[in-house]
Design a protein around this nucleic acid. Structure first.
Lengths: 187, 187
DNA sequence: ATTTTATCAAACAAAATGTTTTGTAATTCA
DNA sequence: TGAATTACAAAACATTTTGTTTGATAAAAT
């Protein structure tokens, strides 16, 4: 059974209205009333789709970020590089290209007033990816520093690299960004 | 002219009520009504002290963080180490000791539901400090990576290090944390 | 002692939240 | 195509929160 076309339409209208409002106001300043007005739907209709404003945010973020890392998280954990440096670099560059493909929507989100919120949602699947695919190859020879600190450090370093990249307007190429990151992160 | 004792009392009552509420609820869930009830003051009295809930948050954060870095920011920018590695390490350790002294209040704040908010406020004066005192000594030999990326990287790396430290319950000593950080951050 | 000021209590309008009801129109499926 | 189902809109509703304003009272400053 397909989903009712009306449901699809309403759902899309809400998402669209929400993203449009985010360009004007901060997340906290957006009221459900605003969304209702902007999407031009009835009050009860909104509540038929989402319980709260936060669950709407969650849905938006899911749609934005999950698919980017989906292939990494569903695939077997990287047995194809086993620590080789080229393998890690390839994975990093590949992920950066993924992010670059979504630059339009992502840039809009990350440049809005409530960007901090989105980076939090971003960090979750992102960290899982970094931890599984990037960290193992970079921590081989580090023994005199707590392991959990190293993992945390690399995750944050990569996230802040991506953040910097977006705030620069993605001027650098994925290859360059990858090089910067690897140059700064102790191997 | 001294400040009216009543003003002091009310101000303290609001701050205290706010911090107490933060242990129970997230920042977003705390209403001004809650603060009024907890502080046991009249409605108009609150608005005589703070315009909004956000300005109260700002005041709290100012009191928490500013004094920690005050000496660094008011003093002449570090001409006393001129790039020497021991000088940087000393400054880092010194700052970590400062943070450790405030562990009671800071831990309470950083372990609450809305910790993310506080880290944002923390980052500001903290980044100014890192940028002036730490970065210059660590970037001397880095030429093939954009300068602004390096600065951003080190600021974030140091912040995330402090964050990790607090989430670990400050088990490590300032000397150890400093060593971890310098070991991971390319010199 | 007098003036100034901070506070409180109460009342207020305005806005937002979340629920409920009822009628209507779109869609699904037999 | 026709009947049953489902989504929606509109409206009304109680509740909560916000921010302002009033007048009275008590504390502090001079």
């Amino acid at each position: 059974m397909r989903t009712d076309r009306r449901v699809q339409k309403t759902h899309a209208a809400i998402m669209q209205a929400f993203e449009k409002l985010l360009m004007k106001k901060s997340y906290d300043d957006i009221t459900i009333q605003d969304i209702i007005d902007e999407a031009n739907i009835g009050r009860s209709t909104f509540y038929a789709h989402f319980e709260t404003k936060d669950s709407l945010l969650e849905a938006i973020c899911g749609g934005l970020f999950d698919h980017i890392f989906a292939e990494h998280l569903n695939a077997e954990p990287g047995h194809d590089f086993s620590g080789s440096e080229e393998g890690v670099e390839a994975k990093i560059i590949h992920t950066l290209y993924h992010l670059q493909e979504d630059r339009k929507r992502l840039s809009r989100i990350f440049s809005c007033e409530s960007a901090g919120l989105f980076w939090e949602y971003f960090q979750l699947p992102f960290s899982t990816f970094v931890q599984r695919e990037i960290v193992p190859a970079l921590t081989a020879d580090i023994v005199d520093v707590p392991k959990d600190y190293v993992v945390d450090f690399i995750c944050n370093a990569f996230t802040s690299t991506v953040k910097w990249w977006f705030y620069q307007g993605l001027k650098a190429t994925p290859e360059e960004v990858s090089r910067y990151f690897l140059r700064m992160t102790l191997r």
